[in-house]
Amino acid sequence: MDTSFRLLPETASTMASQVDGLYFFLNAVAAFFALLIFVLIVYFSLRYRRRDESVRPAPVPTNLKLELLWTIIPFLITMVLFSWSARLFIQMSHSPADAMRINVVGKQWMWKIQHPDGQREINALHVPVGKPIELMMTSQDVIHSFYVPAFRIKQDVLPGSYSRLAFTPTKVGEYHLFCAEFCGDQHSGMIGKVVVMEPAKYDAWLAGTIPDEPPALAGERLFAQYGCMACHGQRGPTMAGLFGRKVELNDGTTVTADEQYLHESIFDPAAKIVRGFTPLMPSFRGQLTEEQVMQLIAYIKSLQYSQSTQEQQ
């Protein structure tokens, strides 16, 4: 992700450059009228400044032509703006028949995503470049909003109904994914990334055979593959922000969630039960290799909201 200072967000979808086009036109219109008003005010204030206390300027009669002029011209400009933006909006709302459909569930405070072939991920969305995508979205609790600035798209995600969001990524890279509708305490932590990949790499990612894949990413795949997210975050404790935190246990003691603890919890889940939860989790001993457990731990480590959130908890 490019984190340098900039004045415009990255343009990474077919809509992005088109919305920017309208934005630049709006900038031109706004700059013209703002300057017109500012220059006139400053000029009049200097040119007609009060030199003599007793002066009584003659009234200027209302000029109907002028009034009509500055009613009709702005009206025409707004109609140009309306038709331009309406055309873009209709285009934006349309998704081609061959679009790849990905399911998105928003919940406090994470994005759960499932690809057409069943691959799951959390707070990340991997998509192939150049392929039209349609997201089918719903929420499990309150209203969220799926927002990718680099694509110039946003759609509220509502509980109790489905909303759609269509886009076609055009540039390989990693982009911000934000929740844009206030959804509670960790609203600003309900963020993630959209990873746009070359189609071949995307296929490899789906198949889970990415060469020199970072351990955290591999762990994320495993987390999805073994169905961990079916419980963790709901019936089970959430993994977000867990690593390094003090965890209170059922017997009243606390333990720090370090590598050792996580390892034990995967292979021998009943040993230490987090306060308020029931021991439901099966042991994964024999199912996971040590290497895979390390990858899972790497993934859990990566799930921090931000440094400070962790400090406070």
Partner: peptide, 29 residues
């Protein structure tokens, strides 16, 4: 006069958010 200047900018940026395609991007930001 400060009002007129600031209101002008506020009003003109209203055009951005009335432009529905731009509003999709900037709303809630």
């Amino acid at each position: 006069l400060g009002f007129i200047g600031l209101f002008t900018i506020g009003g003109l940026t209203g055009l951005y958010v009335a432009s529905i395609a731009v509003d999709v991007h900037v709303t809630d930001t």
